[in-house]
């Protein structure tokens, strides 16, 4: 099977897993869910790292650098702000 086909299989199955899990999340946690999911979408960092692997000032490299920058803001900011919120939710226990 070609990588593309395998990818489509994986995508379809993962969507179902996502649906099953996320329908169980209570409304109280919807905002942390969004910011947390946001951080996860920063997984594009994996692609970005590949794009900036030499020190040459080529367009490809500079675009790669910007991609890393964007993805890292997403990852670090997303996880930290989610943690900040969840700390408040847990604080009154």
């Amino acid at each position: 099977m070609s990588p593309l086909l395998i990818g489509i299989y994986v995508f379809a199955l993962a969507v179902f897993v996502g649906f099953e899990i996320i329908t169980k999340i209570p409304p109280t946690l919807h905002t942390p869910l969004m910011s947390g999911a946001n951080a996860v979408s920063g997984i594009t960092i994996v692609g970005a790292l590949f794009c900036a692997r030499t020190a040459d000032m080529t367009t490809a490299n500079i675009l790669g650098f910007l991609a890393i920058l964007f993805a890292m803001i997403n990852v670090v900011g997303g996880f930290m702000v989610t943690d900040r919120m969840l700390k408040m939710f847990g604080g009154k226990k």
Binding site: I6, G7, G18, V40, S41
Partner: peptide, 14 residues
């Protein structure tokens, strides 16, 4: 990369 596809699908579904 299947890991990216899985993450993307999870966020997309959410």
């Amino acid at each position: 990369n299947n890991m990216l596809i899985i993450c993307g699908a999870l966020v997309g579904a959410s």
